[in-house]
Design a protein around this nucleic acid. Structure first.
Lengths: 191, 191
DNA sequence: TTTGATTTTCAAAGTTTTCTGAAATCACTA
DNA sequence: TAGTGATTTCAGAAAACTTTGAAAATCAAA
């Protein structure tokens, strides 16, 4: 009796390719390759896996698997779960793609953008400007102010998208991707 | 150049801190530290610098300076320029912050997002679904479709922002940061 | 409390990425 | 064409980052 093809060859191969592609993408954006691969594996299989499953499928050490999976939980893109009668911990990816990207954005803002903004404000305050300041200092301050203006706008947009209110990003992005004619016409507000 | 009083100690120190902070931020997002530092130096000084200037201020080798500066030109965030009666090439950062981020977004989409989308479509096509497909295959395809849906929306939003029409991002982001209901009062500013 | 399974930690090893510097190439001039 | 100075290249060296694996810590059940 041939085994039911619930794990056809093609599925496993597609999963492997997805893991590779996602891992590579992660490393281009400053996430360690393995961590991205673990995330990819959990996402693409869609079911809870334990540390040994991850080790086997990705051929990585126990330590690495443990650290990666924990980091993903810290990022909020993977949840811990348990199986009745099994002492092992299982891990399951967030499968709502929009929620997943909200979590990623939230963490990156918290870890990288917010500290950056703090530093830039400090740097800005190192060169106070009054009317007798040299031109070089005024220009310098102006460049920093322009950068801060941009980053604060971006930060503010990011906050909305990530906010507990929730689905903001999805709504706004869907609108922006569809409406907003070809040209200069701006998005209509309409909350 | 004789040290004019327009280069007070505080200015140089602020520049150095900016370079360090920007370099660190770059490496968190997958840009090599030195490349980000060179960009920071050109941006924060605001004037055209040649390779030797960059080497000296950043204490890096000629080769590294040359490669970094060329990569920044390829990214479209730095321009080549020349000084009358000087055979050296000078480099000057794009100082319009919104244009700078449009260039960065354009390149990252071209280099990373678009190839990713191509791969994901190929992977999606590895597991065609019909009514007698196993459940595992259907679920797998559904997860990939959800991810593709998100990424294509994001890609589409990105394209608008980056489009030759130009100021789309600025307009939309400024709107999004200020309007749209709930959150805190948005940053003042704009152009 | 003991036991044994599971998870975490972290120093050392391994890998990847980045940087250096000297040689090759280029661009211009005489 | 040779000479001069600027720029690019790239093999090897150095630095940064990641992974391993065995020991320690934790945990749950008995």
């Amino acid at each position: 009796m041939p085994p039911r093809p619930s794990h056809p060859e093609a599925l496993v191969e597609a999963q492997a390719r997805f893991v590779a592609v996602w891992g590579q993408m992660g490393s281009a954006w400053g996430i360690s390759r393995t961590m991205a691969e673990v995330h990819a594996l959990l996402f693409v299989t869609g079911e809870p896996l334990n540390t040994d499953d991850v080790m086997e499928r990705l051929e990585i050490s126990r330590g690495n698997a443990s650290m990666s999976v924990r980091a993903l939980v810290d990022w909020g893109v993977v949840y811990r779960s348990h199986k009745r009668g099994d002492r092992k911990e299982y891990f399951q990816a967030e499968l709502d793609v929009w929620a997943m990207f909200r979590a990623i954005l939230r963490e990156r803002m918290k870890r990288e953008v917010d500290p950056l903004l703090v530093s830039l404000h400090e740097i800005r305050d190192m060169t106070p400007v009054d009317r007798k300041s040299p031109e070089a200092v005024r220009d310098h301050a102006q460049r920093l102010d322009a950068l801060l203006g941009f980053l604060e706008t971006a930060d503010s947009v990011g906050r909305r998208f990530v906010s507990p209110t929730g689905k903001g990003l999805q709504t706004a992005a869907t609108l922006l991707s569809k409406t907003m004619g070809t040209g200069k016409r701006a998005a209509e507000g309409g909350a």
